Amino acid sequence: MNPADPDTEKGQPGIARAALFGLCPRCGAKTLFAGTVRFADRCRVCALDFTRFDVGDGPAAFLILIIGGLVATLAIGLQLAADPPYWLQALVWVPVTTLLVLGGLRLAKAGLLASEFRNRAGEGRLGK
């Protein structure tokens, strides 16, 4: 427990820990995901409604740009250094890209949801 972060003293995981392990941002149970990158509707332990958080498509768009640039750079570097056949390039980079996108998307979505919970972010309300 970090004394500088008062929320972790209440049993709530930090944003990074919640993102890495798929933890509920309120109780710390490993209940955030119902699939590889799909959120559960609610926490099975504390009943926090995950559907009220909207992480949108920001993490996916951001990851496409970053991972696409990284994989393209690595593939070009491999091509210039070793000149492997194109089928080998595809055999290497398609699964690497898929794993990086799925892992990165899971981390980014969980981190954004935990951040929204921690900062009490919500949709704007008219008329209160």
Results as ranks from 00 to 15, higher is better:
Asp54Gly: 02
Leu100Gln: 07
Ile76Ala: 13
Asp83Met: 12
Ser115Glu: 08
Ala108Leu: 14
Gly69Met: 02
Gly124Lys: 12
Arg120Phe: 09
Gly104Gln: 06
Leu107Lys: 01
Arg125Ser: 07
Arg52Pro: 00
Ala110Cys: 09
Thr98Tyr: 11
Val45Ser: 08
Leu80Val: 00
Glu116Gln: 15
Val96Pro: 02
Trp87Gly: 14
Glu123Trp: 09
Ala114Asp: 07
Pro95Lys: 07
Gly124Arg: 06
Ser115Pro: 00
Arg120Ile: 04
Ala47Ser: 11
Leu107Trp: 08
Ala81Gly: 01
Pro85Leu: 01
Leu126Arg: 13
Ala82Pro: 02
Val96Cys: 06
Ala114Leu: 08
Pro95Met: 05
Leu48Lys: 04
Leu102Gly: 02
Val101Ile: 15
Gln79Pro: 02
Leu102Phe: 13
Arg52Asn: 00
Leu74Ser: 04
Gln89Ile: 13
Ala47Trp: 01
Gly69Glu: 05
Ala82Gly: 00
Gln79Lys: 11
Gly77Leu: 15
Ser115Gln: 08
Leu112Gln: 15
Trp87Asn: 14
Asn119Trp: 09
Leu100Tyr: 06
Asp83Gly: 11
Leu80Met: 11
Arg52Tyr: 00
Ile64Gly: 06
Gly56Asp: 12
Val94Met: 13
Val71Asn: 06
Pro95Thr: 10
Leu78Gln: 10
Gly104Glu: 13
Arg106Lys: 13
Thr98Leu: 13
Gly111Ala: 13
Ile64Leu: 15
Ala81Asn: 00
Trp93Lys: 01
Arg120Asn: 15
Leu88Ile: 12
Phe50Ala: 08
Asp54His: 15
Phe117Asn: 03
Val101His: 02
Gly68Leu: 10
Ile64Met: 15
Asp57Met: 07
Leu99Arg: 06
Ala110Tyr: 12
Pro84Lys: 06
Val71Ala: 07
Val92Met: 12
Arg52Thr: 11
Gly69Ala: 06
Glu116Trp: 05
Trp93Val: 03
Ile67Thr: 10
Pro84Ser: 11
Gly103Ser: 10
Ala82Trp: 10
Val94Leu: 14
Ser115Leu: 15
Phe117Ser: 03
